[in-house]
Nucleic acid binder design. Sequence first.
RNA 1: GGUCCAGUAGCUCAGUUGGAUAGAGCAACUGCCUUCUAAGCAGUAGGUCGUGGGUUCGAAUCCCGCCUGGAUCACCA
Length: 597
Amino acid sequence: MIDLLLQESVSKALNSLYNISIEAKDIVLSATKKEFIGDFTLVVFAFVKQAKKSPEQIANEIGKFVKADCEDIEGFNVIKGFLNFEVAQSYWLKFVDINKTKYTFGYQTIREEKPVVVEYSSPNTNKPLHLGHIRNNLLGWSVAEILKANGYAVKKVNLVNDRGIHICKSMLAWQRFGSGETPQSTGMKGDHLVGKYYVLFDKEYKRQIGEMVEKGVDKDIAEKTAPFLLEAQDMLRKWEAKDEKVIELWTMMNGWVYEGFDETYKKLGVDFDKVYHESNTYLLGKELVKEGVEKGVLYQREDKSIWCDLTADGLDEKLLQRADGTSVYMTQDLGTAVLRHKNFNSDKLIYVVGNEQNYHFTVLKLVLKKLGFAWADNLYHLSYGMVELPEGKMKSREGTVVDADDLIDEMIETAKQQTLEHGKTDGFSEEEANKLYHMLALGALKYFMLKVDPSKNMLFNPKESIDFNGNTGPFIQYTHARIRSIIRKAEEGKDIVIEHIRLDTSLELNLKELEIVRNLYAFPMIIDQAGQTNSPALIANYVYDLAKSFNAFYQDIPILKEENESIVAMRVSLAAFVGNTIKTAMNLLGIKVPERM
RNA sequence: GGUCCAGUAGCUCAGUUGGAUAGAGCAACUGCCUUCUAAGCAGUAGGUCGUGGGUUCGAAUCCCGCCUGGAUCACCA
């Protein structure tokens, strides 16, 4: 790797010229900006004080030293305090030659034996998945894959919220109004069917409140004592007492929902190594709380409720167990965290959860540490922002929720329309064409979601997302298809096999080709960085840049008509390399790239 | 009110550990399809990086104040 050699050489130069000792790995080299000549840039301002010379002088001296020391450095130029190293063309050609048909995942060796546990998705079983879940699922899945590419063992887990008053609401409404409806009898997806009854509950509940208020009952009281709500609460008590009939109904309806979810997950291309259910985990954590009290880390109030005092950390006091001995959300999460640590022998937990729970996770981490779990330091909340619509926030009550399944179907339909308009699928079988529409629709959706920094709220504009121009998934997919086309044509016409082409290292690369090669060179570093920051956005923006620069190059340089065979070989090799890199990068985002379109 | 996050072109977003003249796409306007996929390419126009200070050779980036928007501050999950 030329950048490592450069770092070493610069380190040597600093030492021998100015007696400054900096380890090679701490030498900061950046990619030279397009408008300047060179490949790597060293900023020398930092050494001015110690070297006691002008920046220009220092840059020139280091440049000379490195040029003599490092054989692949052909030259250098100095602009103010910026020292630009020029890497020999032959080096880049060798680089292309070696990697042209390879997939270059960052680290392929195992970095750590212990797995990283990534929790994501975590739906409720009372309603179907919506736009927010899509962001969550795509982020979680992609982060897991990026970590794998960085040499971590990864376990993807899902914690389904399958119990509680909200679940009872849809159960009750189904009993009352359902007249035996099932997914089979209605042809509805199970999660949608159950969601329908959740809405019906709310309707009836509101109607009852209205009726009571009309009769002169105070609104607050009506909201708390409406018969339908009391029935739901009663049902929850029965559930907790393991009432046979309630459990039977609960099992059946949840079963419908899971089938529905599985279908949506499949469409999105996400999967899990283990699924946890809150019905099994909601009682966890009580032991921990008890131990905490014994250790004196937690304290009990006169009413027997148990608290954790976080005022020393600038936070409030946090309840961990109610006076009646029942546990709360936090208690449960403490329990599941410890359970996971045990289940997977894992010291690293990543939670993909919306930023409205930032406080919750700060507290979770602190309490775990207080309870004496050192691994709590490695608990990471991958917090993501809300997805907003042009019309404003999504509100389930106002019916402005964008349903995940509907959205996906809509995207596929639009992909189909646009593709037909462009006549792209002429000569495709129906199966091939449908496959392509899927790829494009999901590519558009996934790319749109993942290219944005997770921590930020984002605006989802359905119309714009289905735009197939610009910084979009389909543009990158299109670039890949064009690259495959070049390779097909090259192989047909020239009877060549890319693996066996040896590149002539005396060739000259033009500026656009150099830009592409540097971009390719940066790929492993991009993956590495994304692994550390858990950011698919980094990879998305990288692969877009690569696709864009390749398209520009490809537009005005004839590849196959070039007379000189070694130039043809070089360009086809470069195309193959770019194609593989795009495929690899897109894989990490969960996006498929078509061979042709 | 306390805490946390965000504010970059008309809109949606990038901007590596502080580096050179802050970048893309969309929308607008100009060109380019007998030539490997025009879902493309080239170009024009568009900026007080919310704001005021500070740190230094250098700040969109780090620190402090203020303004704006959002989240959260439940014996809900």
